[in-house]
Amino acid sequence: MKLTEEQYELIEAYLGNELSAADRASVEADMAADAEFRAEVDYQRSVRTGLRMLGIEQAVNRAKAQYVASQAANASPTLVRPLGQPDRSRWQYWAAAASVVLLLGVGYGAYHYNSRQSYTASLLSAQSDDLLKGFPREGLSASTRDQLMTALEAYRAGNYDKVIDNVKALPETRQTVYYKDYLLGLSYLANREPVQAIPLLQSALATPSPVLRQKAEWILALAYVKNGQNEKALPILTRVSTNKANPYQKLAQQVLQKIR
């Protein structure tokens, strides 16, 4: 239904509780009598809710940025880490992710930091990830877990051939299948073999873990870029770059700038 400007303003005023009791009752009578008009009011209500939540999300993002900044300034990571737990290194994963970005030729300098504070802030707010995110936690045998941990160590050491060999040798179970595909895809990409990486990362997208799916999607976009398939990377990067809740949003925006 195409609204007139007058109808639009009336619905605006209704949803904003700006109408008199009599006018309000009149709008509600129209809604009861006219399903199309009622659908318009429902649509406007939904979109207003979505836009309001976008505003709240922006406010939460600002609060988070301030929290991250205060953490960096205070240099007190123990405040956010339980005692006895190691700082599971986002720093290491960042280095690994940056190496992928570097090999893609989109400019490590763009992601390099000017100070510890800005680096930490960007790290926590945009690239908050590490290799253990999405790691299967349940139903693994001790030997499988050890093999996976060995593969992760090899990845961190930059020995991607070893990762690929180790991960290929892992038994394929319900618990490991998606993480295995993801890690293999990541390693092939780091090894400059995007053709091998792409189908594995596509397969990893079927994981029930939202965290792993988010990671696999981001790395898949990079694999497409590396393979010269920008047309396939663009929809993913556009989606990621417009999702403020996505930890790869800023990186996706930077990659988009490079390939457009």
Partner: peptide
């Protein structure tokens, strides 16, 4: 509602 937000954002 987060799906709604995503659609509105897009």
């Amino acid at each position: 509602r987060f799906e709604l937000v995503q659609m509105v954002r897009n």
